[in-house]
Write a protein that binds this DNA or RNA. Structure first.
Lengths: 144, 144
DNA sequence: ATAATTCATAGGAATGTGGTAGGAAATAAA
DNA sequence: TTTATTTCCTACCACATTCCTATGAATTAT
């Protein structure tokens, strides 16, 4: 019942891109350094976000990545689903696998459905902009 | 972000014990047959529940298992936590591992905390008695 | 005694996780 | 035009976890 590093790193990258956005592209090298994560591993993860159209890339020296849209247009759910896939606690209540043949007689499915709804309610109601705001609040608290 | 078969089977077994309770011990063989799960695998799982004191066992012919307490005294959370461990989406918000060293500066932890709370709210407010009730409702609907 | 059951432990195939490695392609800067 | 920097692509791999199977011992009703 864990979110893997893939999803967590994806979130951290998107947040990094949102926070350090200056109009110039941000290189993976910088992100990897700031977030203290293997650059090579981040390559693979951001490639998913790139193909999903969540970031734009520029190659060559001084190249790097941007967010395609503004932070409030990305929910945590969007980012996690791209990288983690469905967050359903069991396959049968997810959108990816069509559910099992015992679905009608199965009682526990009601539990999984409730968990699924609760999780989705959380992740679909937090945007990248919220994270940026929280980050800034933390920064302020530290400087006081 | 999945609940493994261990936790799901544990839940099904506890539910089976609750539903088919007649005062006589219920053998794993019967449960395995009804739930269509490998008996040998169920042995390992129920051993956890046994050590936790959630079921009582009787060895030998006509032996088997009982629930130690009445169904409304078990929450889904109790059962899942015994078998799955912590259901926290990341280790740092769980009760098992003490959290990482970046916890103070980390923003995403707020997300994981909210997910954790939401999941716990669901699983700690459903009892085995609820599942039994749902099961009976389903049975009635089918017979109509 | 016998047979049915739980209990304990070992093993193992398949899959997923969390990366590393190597190099090709693009491109800005020298 | 060369060089260095960056993204892009694919392959590989070690380790852990999951989901069992197998073997046999211990217990006990019949």
């Amino acid at each position: 019942m864990k979110v893997s590093t893939k999803g967590r790193y994806a979130l951290q990258m998107m947040l990094d891109l949102a926070i350090y956005n200056t109009g110039e592209p941000i290189s993976l090298k910088d992100i990897a350094k700031r977030q203290d994560i293997s650059e090579k591993y981040l390559e693979q993860i951001i490639s998913i976000l790139n193909k999903a159209g969540y970031v734009r890339s520029i190659r060559g020296p001084q190249g790097g990545y941007f967010l395609s849209k503004s932070p409030q247009e990305y929910t945590v759910g969007m980012i996690l689903r791209q990288t983690e896939g469905d967050l359903a606690p069991v396959a049968c209540v997810g959108t990816e696998n069509p559910g099992c043949e015992k679905i009608e007689e199965c009682v526990t499915v009601k539990i999984w459905q409730k968990i699924n709804d609760a999780v989705n309610d959380v992740i679909d109601n937090i945007t990248l902009a919220d994270l940026v705001e929280w980050q800034e609040e933390k920064a302020n608290n530290y400087s006081i």
